[in-house]
């Protein structure tokens, strides 16, 4: 520290002298380079003033006393900057530490999500889930049971970031601890609701939609817990309709019951499940309309389910200037033609 100060001082005297003699841009450029060097060496602002004073003592020892006194004044003024500068350095280190911790946590969280979509002969499945920042409050899950039925869950923890991510890990363990045999969507949500109600602070809520596709009869059974409605695409009529399921959010009331709905799925029909980060994409003109979303999905509907969700995500991300305001999850299940 003391050594680097001495070295800085020698250099400062040298470049200031050059500048005072030549008074040109080269000298000022050297000053700019030097300012980077003082930062690298963690020389604080009041020390820079001190460097200047010491240099002046060499060049102009005969300055009036008032000028010298004024430097004491200047050093005192710079003290505040010096203190802020030191705090800044420490906070920067702290931030790096926090960031690396969050990166580890975010990687861990990724392992909670399924690696791949289930391979089902009758279905074409696409999924995309992107957190707004590093950690996500969205959760999705696929399960294939012995009868070949495909269960699909999508959940959104109200809020985002680390608290939502912690809550999401609990949903994952809640799902894992449910009985092995196939559960009807309504019963599954009732079970999960009790887990959430017991384990999560009363100010955290989770919305969820759970559906089960039976490929033997091509019926989609589903129930919802206050979740953003999805869509059902009817290929024969080329129309989208809302996939709504009435039900209270998870964690609100221990004894909530969930109604079960079902839809007959014809070849080429598809189900769209999403989190509210998809419909709450904000552009300069406000939230996008749900029609805007169905228009986008329709536009890509000739592609595979995975390509549809990828393209829709890209378009909506672009609309928002490539910065997401909320976690984004979109799932499409299509009965193959």
């Amino acid at each position: 520290m003391a050594d680097s100060y001495r070295l800085m001082q020698e250099q400062y005297v040298k470049i200031l002298k050059t500048y005072l003699e030549d008074k040109n841009e080269i000298g000022l450029y050297q000053a700019q380079q030097f300012s980077k060097k003082v930062l690298e060496n963690q020389i604080s602002p009041e020390e820079v003033v001190s460097l200047h004073i010491e240099a002046l003592e060499q060049f102009y020892p005969d300055l009036p006393q008032g000028a010298w006194d004024s430097f004491d004044f200047l050093i005192e003024i710079m003290m505040g900057y010096g203190m802020a500068y030191r705090e800044h350095q420490i906070l920067r280190d702290k931030q790096k530490e926090l960031e690396s911790e969050i990166n580890v946590a975010a990687n861990m969280q990724q392992t909670f999500l399924p690696d791949e979509v289930p391979d089902v002969e009758e279905l074409d499945i696409g999924v995309i889930s992107v957190p707004a920042s590093k950690m996500s409050g969205d959760y999705y899950h696929f399960v294939k049971d012995n009868n070949g039925c495909v269960g699909v869950a999508i959940a959104d923890i109200i809020g985002k970031g680390v608290p939502a991510a912690l809550c999401m890990s609990m949903i994952k363990y809640g799902m894992d601890s449910l009985p092995e045999q196939r559960l009807q969507p309504g019963a599954l949500l009732e079970n999960l609701n009790r887990v959430v109600e017991q384990n999560v602070a009363s100010n955290m809520f989770i919305t969820m939609m759970y559906g089960s596709y039976d490929p033997r009869v091509h019926h989609f059974y589903y129930s919802g817990a206050g979740h953003e409605p999805g869509f059902f695409y009817n290929r024969a009529e080329d129309t989208f309709e809302e996939l709504y399921a009435k039900g209270l959010v998870l964690g609100l009331n221990r004894d909530t019951q969930f109604r079960e709905y079902h839809k007959k799925i014809e070849p080429g029909d598809f189900i769209v499940l999403l989190s509210d980060g998809v419909t709450e994409c904000r552009t300069a003109e406000g939230f996008i309309e749900r029609e805007e979303l169905t228009r986008l999905i329709h536009q890509y509907s000739d592609l595979s389910a995975q390509e549809i969700v990828n393209n829709v995500f890209y378009q909506l991300e672009k609309l928002q200037g490539f910065s997401l305001r909320d976690d984004f999850s979109l799932i499409i299940l299509r009965r193959k033609v």
Partner: peptide, 20 residues
């Protein structure tokens, strides 16, 4: 703790004194 706000922030307060 750095960044503790009642000190008026910007590096002042007791952590600031400690560093000086």
């Amino acid at each position: 703790e750095d960044g503790y706000t009642t000190s008026g922030g910007l590096g002042a307060g007791l952590p600031g004194v400690k560093r000086l």
